[in-house]
Write a protein that binds this DNA or RNA. Sequence first.
DNA 1: TTACTGACCTTTT
DNA 2: AAAAAGGCCAGTA
Length: 110
Amino acid sequence: MVHSFSNRVEDIIKSIPEGKVATYGQIAACAGVPRGARGVAWILHSCSENDRLPWHRVVNRKGGISLPHHQGYELQMALLKKEGVRFGESGYIDLDHYGWDPDESRSESQ
DNA sequence: TTACTGACCTTTT
DNA sequence: AAAAAGGCCAGTA
């Protein structure tokens, strides 16, 4: 169990640049499982103990924080705000602008 | 080994 | 277009 899916997801999350956010499906797909979004969520639970993992950069498909209040919602929001991410009035992030694109990041255009 | 959970996503109505 | 239901994967008990 040295090269499990979880390890792969962790690596991807670590690859997420600051000021950007990635969705579970995106990470799962990058890990090799397009429908493994749930698995990613579970892994985050396991890795939430590791402060080295920018789990706060992981958001749901709606660009919002899935964590309920009193659980890390405000924490993730605060961390994202510190990164420079702006939240909408409804509390949703513009994935169209803050969504992390591996292809774009790979080219390091910006 | 089977069953259940979990911070989800996709598709259909 | 929005809402609802189902399905998917990984991990632990």
